[in-house]
Amino acid sequence: MTYLRNRDNCPLIRLNINDFSGQPGAFCMSYGFDNSQLIKSINSVGLINYPYIVKNRDQQIELITGFRRILALKELNVKEVSCFDLTDLDISPYEMLMLAVYDNLFIREFNIVEKSLIINMLSQLVKGKGLLNEVCSLININQKDYKLFLRINMLDETIKQFISRGVLHIKTVESLISMDKEDALLLSDWINKLKLSYSYQLQCVDYLNDISRINKTSICSILNDTFFTELLRDEKKNIPQKAREFMDHLRVKRNPEFSKYQKLFEKTVKNLNLPVNVRVQNPQFFESKGYRMEIDFDNGKTLRNTLMEITDIKYNLEALKDPWLNESDEI
């Protein structure tokens, strides 16, 4: 952008702060931000980086860069602001957009929603793939995700706030886009309240989609189940505990045989009549191989005695096997 290398090309003018509406303009790409630090900075040392503006045919001000700075100045009750005026430079809308991108790019990273804003603005100004690919690379968007980022801006504002705060994984966002609006809103709210990790989010979406398809019901109906609503209200459990129980219950609803196998295994262990200091545990939801035996003992002698005792044929340890091999047994 050679037209900006010499600031003499851009006259610095003084404008009344009320000439700016305080609403995001056509080239604004700030979303979900906290302006407190910027306000402190301007209050301490003044405005260092002046906004860029153009005037339309009606002489109304259009802000190209500096939306957050204008908001900060309004908060500080500043009456006037100096701005660089690009009106007479005959700059194209695409060049204005790129000016705004570079103005932000070297002082911060764009969040996912801001990248979506840029992609949507760009799609209206540029048709050639070359420039699209160049900008995608500039703001760290994989070209294959271009259409996804186009659609993110169409999501509900509540969901976009979650996205901008880093609550939702990009793969989760992709799934939310294809959901019914009410389903997407409720699911994103649950993810936020339970602070689900990214891996939990992906599993959660898979489970809910499967349960919804199998039972021919909406995701809202699943999440409004009494078990889930009571879990959320349970003040005795912390957030990680609630998240684990939430995921465990979804697994069982998705795979009801888990519950059946658990009962079969517990029945087998109970029938062994093992000593009270011996416990046998199955892997959670039988998702991994191998079982676990725990023995409480006071010293090596009691451990040896316990080991000798449980190997007695009367305990029939050979009965311990994968529960689906015992499905013919009654629960």
Results as ranks from 00 to 15, higher is better:
Asp156Tyr: 09
Gly128Asp: 15
Leu185Ser: 00
Ile119Gln: 00
Lys115Thr: 06
Val101Ser: 09
Asp189Gly: 04
Gly130Asp: 11
Asn111Val: 00
Leu148Asn: 05
Arg151Val: 02
Lys147Asp: 15
Leu117Phe: 04
Asn111Pro: 02
Val135Tyr: 05
Thr158Asp: 12
Arg151Thr: 08
Met179Phe: 14
Ile112Arg: 14
Ala184Ser: 15
Asn142Phe: 07
Phe149Gln: 02
Met154Gly: 11
Lys129Pro: 06
Leu194Phe: 13
Ser199His: 07
Asp103Val: 14
Asn153Trp: 04
Asn111Asp: 03
Ser123Cys: 00
Lys115Glu: 02
Asn192Ser: 14
Trp190Lys: 08
Leu202Asn: 14
Leu148Thr: 10
Phe149Met: 03
Asp180Ala: 02
Leu187Thr: 09
Asp183Cys: 00
Ile191His: 06
Phe162Ala: 06
Val113Ser: 04
Lys160Ile: 06
Gln124Ser: 14
Leu122Gln: 05
Ile141Met: 10
Asp145Tyr: 10
Glu174Leu: 02
Leu132Lys: 15
Met179Asn: 04
Ser116Cys: 08
Asn192Ile: 02
Leu185Glu: 01
Glu157Met: 14
Glu109Trp: 04
Leu122Asp: 00
Asn192Ala: 13
Ser116Leu: 01
Leu122Gly: 05
Leu186Gln: 06
Tyr198Glu: 11
Leu202Glu: 15
Val205Lys: 02
Leu125Gly: 07
Trp190Gln: 06
Lys195Asp: 03
Thr158Gln: 12
Cys204Trp: 10
Tyr102Trp: 11
Cys136Met: 11
Arg165Asn: 14
Met179Ala: 00
Glu134Gly: 09
Ile119Met: 05
Ile118Val: 15
Glu182Pro: 00
